Amino acid sequence: GCWSIEHVEQYLGTDELPKNDLITYLQKNADAAFLRHWKLTGTNKSIRKNRNCSQLIAAYKDFCEHGT
């Protein structure tokens, strides 16, 4: 299931919640338009490089609020 937004804000980028895991989750569960909008298409590695934690948190919040 979903992590809470508080959990993501607190732990994203740590061993508790690697950016990797959040990106994988969104790529698996969000639709193509969402991924394009948040620039989460492409390889996990390129996304990790190009999107910082606050951008990923914003995307995750949007996903939780509007889910697909």
Score class of each variant (00 low, 15 high):
G1Y: 03
G1S: 13
G1F: 14
G1R: 11
G1V: 11
C2V: 10
C2D: 15
C2A: 12
C2H: 05
W3C: 03
W3Q: 02
W3A: 02
W3D: 03
W3I: 03
S4Y: 04
S4A: 12
S4E: 10
S4W: 02
I5T: 07
I5C: 07
I5N: 05
I5K: 10
E6N: 09
E6A: 13
E6P: 05
E6F: 06
E6T: 10
H7F: 11
H7S: 05
V8Y: 00
V8M: 04
V8E: 01
V8L: 10
V8I: 06
E9T: 12
E9L: 06
Q10G: 06
Q10P: 00
Q10E: 07
Q10I: 07
Q10S: 11
Q10N: 12
L12Q: 02
L12S: 02
L12I: 09
L12Y: 00
L12R: 01
L12D: 02
L12P: 00
G13Y: 01
G13L: 01
G13F: 01
G13V: 01
T14F: 02
T14D: 02
T14C: 05
T14M: 04
D15I: 15
D15C: 15
D15K: 15
E16K: 15
L17H: 01
L17R: 01
L17T: 01
L17N: 00
P18W: 03
P18Y: 07
P18M: 04
K19Q: 08
N20Y: 11
N20I: 14
N20T: 14
N20P: 05
N20S: 14
D21L: 15
D21I: 13
D21N: 13
D21V: 15
D21Q: 15
D21R: 15
L22Q: 02
L22E: 01
I23A: 02
I23L: 05
I23Q: 01
I23E: 03
I23Y: 02
T24W: 07
T24I: 09
T24Q: 15
T24H: 07
Y25L: 05
Y25N: 03
Y25V: 04
Y25S: 02
Y25C: 07
L26F: 11
L26Q: 00
L26K: 00
L26S: 02
L26P: 01
L26T: 00
L26V: 04
Q27H: 06
K28C: 07
K28V: 09
K28E: 11
N29K: 10
N29W: 09
N29R: 08
N29I: 02
N29D: 03
A30G: 13
A30D: 00
A30W: 02
A30V: 02
A30S: 08
D31P: 10
D31C: 14
D31S: 05
D31F: 00
A32G: 09
A32P: 11
A32E: 14
A32M: 13
A33H: 13
A33I: 13
A33Y: 06
A33R: 13
F34C: 02
F34M: 04
F34P: 02
F34D: 03
L35R: 06
L35D: 01
L35I: 04
L35G: 02
R36H: 07
R36I: 07
R36N: 09
R36L: 09
H37F: 14
H37S: 11
H37D: 09
H37I: 08
W38L: 02
W38M: 02
W38D: 01
K39T: 05
K39I: 03
K39V: 04
L40N: 00
L40G: 00
L40W: 01
T41L: 14
T41G: 08
T41E: 13
G42I: 05
G42L: 05
G42K: 07
G42P: 05
G42E: 07
T43K: 10
T43Q: 09
T43F: 06
N44C: 07
K45V: 08
K45M: 08
K45Y: 06
K45W: 06
K45F: 03
S46N: 15
S46A: 10
S46P: 04
I47N: 05
I47Y: 04
R48W: 08
R48Q: 12
R48L: 09
R48F: 07
R48V: 09
R48Y: 08
K49W: 03
K49L: 07
K49I: 03
N50W: 06
N50P: 05
N50L: 07
N50I: 04
R51D: 08
R51G: 06
R51F: 14
R51L: 12
R51M: 11
R51N: 13
N52D: 05
N52Y: 02
N52R: 08
N52F: 03
N52Q: 07
C53M: 09
C53D: 08
C53G: 06
C53N: 07
S54V: 13
S54I: 11
S54F: 08
Q55A: 11
Q55R: 05
L56K: 01
I57V: 09
I57A: 09
I57N: 04
A58D: 10
A58P: 03
A58Y: 06
A58W: 04
A59S: 05
A59P: 02
A59K: 01
A59H: 00
A59F: 01
Y60K: 01
Y60H: 08
Y60R: 01
Y60L: 03
Y60D: 00
K61Q: 11
K61C: 06
K61M: 07
D62K: 09
D62V: 06
F63A: 03
F63K: 01
F63P: 01
F63S: 01
C64H: 08
C64E: 05
C64F: 10
C64L: 10
E65A: 14
E65N: 11
H66S: 14
H66D: 12
H66L: 12
H66T: 12
G67N: 05
G67A: 11
G67V: 13
T68V: 12
T68I: 08
